[in-house]
Structure formats: structure tokens, C-alpha cells
Design a binder for these strands. Sequence first.
DNA 1: TTGTGTTTTATTGCCTCC
DNA 2: GGAGGCAATAAAACACAA
Length: 189
Amino acid sequence: MTHVEEKMLLSSLTSEFYSQTPPQGEAKVKRRRRKKARGDVDMEVKKRRLTDEQVKFLELNFGEEKKLESGRKMHLASELGLDPKQVSVWFQNRRARWKNKQMEEDYMKLKSMHDSVVVEKCHLENEVLKLKKRLEEAEELIKRISGGMGSSPSSSFSNNGVEGEADQLMYMSEYSYNGLMDWMCLYGV
DNA sequence: TTGTGTTTTATTGCCTCC
DNA sequence: GGAGGCAATAAAACACAA
């Protein structure tokens, strides 16, 4: 019996298994196979579990080439004493398992990358918070200093001949209180 | 022993390629 | 149009705790 004849026979035997046909225009929706009734002896297909040796040999071949061309299929089938159909089914299922495993590995890699990016983001956010706090402290200090001298910060800076107030502020926030003390000594504030 | 979850083998329908 | 691939699914076979 050819492959096609086999398929047609199976189709005719199983067509009655379907309770519904898909609505017009929804051909892509797969019909669900009806469960095989218990005791339906005619349709009973005994599953033959492959031996360890057979599986080992198939695994070896799968490792070499994941696809199965016709010649190799026939060769493997005769070598293992299996139906060529069983060999192709085994390869089909093995490819599906392999694909799942690959996806799982890809997922784990992406997850690990994502996790490290999240940690890095957390560190950066902490750093931003620290810097903001230092900036606030520096600004507060400047306010206090300029208030004590009875003039604006800019006038006090310019009075001492210093240019680039922004640069000075950056300097202060960078080196915090000790730096500020140095700066005050330097300009005699 | 039995209920339940997992794995393996097999089937089906659809799709693509030649 | 046929062969072969894939996704989805069924169901047998197996593992294992209770």
C-alpha cells in the first residue's frame, strides 16, 4: 500500500471521528480530533515502544543530521527492523523536542541578560539618588553662605573674581563638604 | 494498588516546495 | 498533485508518591 493510499484509508476510517466541520471561511481553524472510544478494536493501534538500542542508534543519527531524507530513512528502518514510517515519526517528534529545548535555552539566556540589566538599572538609580542628595546639600550650603554675606551668590563669586558658577557648583557637589571647605579657604570666604 | 503527572509514539490537518 | 514538514493533539506506556 502506498503512502497516499494509506493516508486515504486512514482518512476514510477516521472521518466519522469528527463531530464538526469548520465554518466556511475558517479553514485554518484545526478540527479537534474526536477521542477514540474505548473498545473500538478496529481502530486500536498498539504503541510499540522502541528498545534502548534502537533509540540510541536513532539519537546518534539525529546528532549527525536532524532532517531525514528518503534514502537514510529506508536505511535506518531496515537497520533497526522498523517501519520507515516509525523512523520518520521518531525524527519528527525528536525535532519537536529539540526545538522546545532550544527555546528553553534561549529563554534562559534572555532571562539572565534581562536580570543583569535590571540590576545595573538599580545601581544607576541609586547613584542618581546619591548625586541628587549631594547636589541638594551643596545648594543648601550655598544658600546659607550667600545669605550670611548679605548678597547674592553670584555677586560673592564675582567679587572674588571667580568665573563659571555652574562649574563651581559641580565641583562642590562632586567633593561634598570637605571639598567645599577647601573651596572656602581658597577664596577666603 | 491506584491515582496522577510525564514521556513517548502515533495521527491529523494544514502548509510549502518541487 | 504528491511528498514531507510542522503544530496540535490523542493515547499508550511509564514513573512514582501516597
